[in-house]
C-alpha cells in the first residue's frame, strides 16, 4: 500500500499522520478548557524571570 513494502514502515507512516491529527482533534476539543486565573505567584514568577534570568542574557 502507498508503495511501501513493509507493514511496519507503512504503520509508522500512517501513525505519524494520525498522531498529528490526534493533536489537532485534542486541541480543537479542549480549545476553551483549562483556563486558569493568573495568580500572584504566576506574575511574581514572570517578573523574576525577566529580572533575574533574561537580564543576564
Amino acid at each position: 500500500m502507498l508503495g511501501i513494502a513493509d507493514k511496519w514502515v507503512l504503520l509508522a507512516y500512517v501513525l505519524s499522520i494520525l498522531s498529528a491529527i490526534l493533536c489537532v482533534v485534542y486541541g480543537w476539543r479542549t480549545w476553551n478548557k483549562g483556563d486558569e486565573p493568573v495568580k500572584q505567584e504566576d506574575v511574581q514568577w514572570a517578573k523574576e524571570e525577566k529580572e533575574e534570568v533574561e537580564e543576564t542574557l
Binding site: 498529528a20 486541541g27 480549545w31 476553551n32 483556563d35
Partner: peptide, 22 residues
C-alpha cells in the same frame, strides 16, 4: 512549560505543535 499562562494555552498549542513536528 513554565512560561505559559494556563493549561488552556497548552491544549491549544498542542494543535499546531503536532502539525509542525509532522
Amino acid at each position: 512549560f513554565m512560561t505559559v499562562k494556563s493549561r488552556q494555552s497548552l491544549n491549544r498549542a498542542a494543535m499546531a505543535g503536532g502539525i509542525f513536528i509532522l
